[in-house]
């Protein structure tokens, strides 16, 4: 047990070190990529006169050499100050994240919970009961993955807001406004999860230790839950790392259709508007979440399957 704890601490330290290096590399690459794209944050539809462009560039230090800008931004970012947003003039990047991330995360968590509660049992069940039901489950899953979000959202809005008006079509503030977007976001994830769980169960069920357990007369539900389940959900757990990072940081399509004040829209708008600081901040945020969830996934996997190589 003690060695396990030391192992964990060592693992976390190694992960932290690679995380810092990864973040720095991501920062550097995205900084220069952003600057390499033509256009700047202050190109508006109605072009601004030169003096104004100059005054703005001066205020944000945009007329300085690229190397100087890079060092200034890096120094500021290290102190966790992501700077002012160029296009959302009244906001700093930190404020944009603080206002938008909880909304996206709340919606994402609901969707994730829904996806797991539907996906895992369905997948396991299909893996255990091959035949008609399994075939239908697979067809349904393919359909759910292939249907774009906005088509699903359109159909659901039509059904539940106009044909049978029980839910509001958009907006944020009441629990009823959470249901449709969470559902739309969850459906493709549930389908993925179900497919992974099914494949995991199929593979596990043919393992020798399962057959041994059945041969020894262990009751079926014990074999399923105690012996097969931990190994069968491993693929789902590995999938969760990137999935959680993606789902927490919001979805542009769903946020647009349902007018949700999340952070997903900022991801796309920041890139399109050349809002350098906001885009950098969001890329760093996404990277951080991804690194954290991947580390968590590795730990959970180790707990589920002690045969895995040491952390």
């Amino acid at each position: 047990m003690a060695s396990g704890r030391i192992e964990l601490v060592g693992f976390l330290c190694r992960r932290l070190l690679t995380a810092v290096l990864t973040l720095w590399a991501v920062f550097t690459i995205s900084f220069f990529l952003m600057r390499a794209v033509p256009g700047g944050p202050f190109d508006h539809e109605q072009q601004v006169p030169e003096e104004i462009r100059q005054a703005t560039a001066d205020r944000y230090g945009l007329d300085q050499p690229l190397g100087v800008q890079y060092l200034r931004e890096l120094a500021r970012t290290v102190t966790l100050d992501l700077g002012p947003s160029y296009r959302l003039a009244d906001y700093t990047v930190n404020e944009v994240i603080v206002e938008g991330l909880p909304t996206s995360a709340a919606l994402g968590l609901m969707a994730l919970a829904l996806a797991l509660t539907v996906g895992v049992p369905t997948g396991l069940w299909a893996g255990l009961n091959r035949g008609m039901a399994d075939r239908w489950m697979r067809r349904l899953a393919v359909l759910a993955i292939a249907t774009p979000n906005f088509v699903l959202a359109g159909i659901l809005i039509l059904l539940f807001c106009f044909v049978w008006p029980v839910l509001p079509p958009a907006g944020w503030g009441q629990p009823s406004q959470l249901i449709l977007p969470a559902f739309c976001l969850a459906i493709p994830f549930a389908a993925y999860v179900a497919r992974l769980a099914r494949a995991g169960m199929l593979e596990t069920w043919n393992q020798e230790y399962i057959r041994t357990a059945i041969a020894k007369g262990v009751p079926r539900h014990v074999v399923v839950w105690k012996h097969a389940f931990p190994a069968a959900v491993l693929p789902v757990v590995s999938f969760l790392g990137p999935a959680v990072a993606g789902i927490l940081t919001g979805s542009l399509v769903i946020e647009r259709i349902f007018a949700i004040p999340g952070i997903g829209t900022s991801f796309v708008n920041a890139a399109l508007d050349r809002d350098y600081t906001l885009a950098m901040g969001l890329v760093l945020l996404y990277t951080t979440i991804l690194l954290v969830t991947n580390a968590l996934v590795d730990i959970v996997q180790k707990l589920l399957d002690p045969r895995l190589e040491s952390l």
Binding site: F162, P168, P169, A170, G171, R256, I257, F258, A259, P261
Partner: peptide, 18 residues
């Protein structure tokens, strides 16, 4: 003043009386 970027969503909100 509610921020809604998509005209279709605006129309939905209007039709739903919101």
């Amino acid at each position: 003043a509610i921020t809604v970027e998509s005209p279709a969503t605006m129309l939905n909100l209007f039709e739903a009386g919101l």
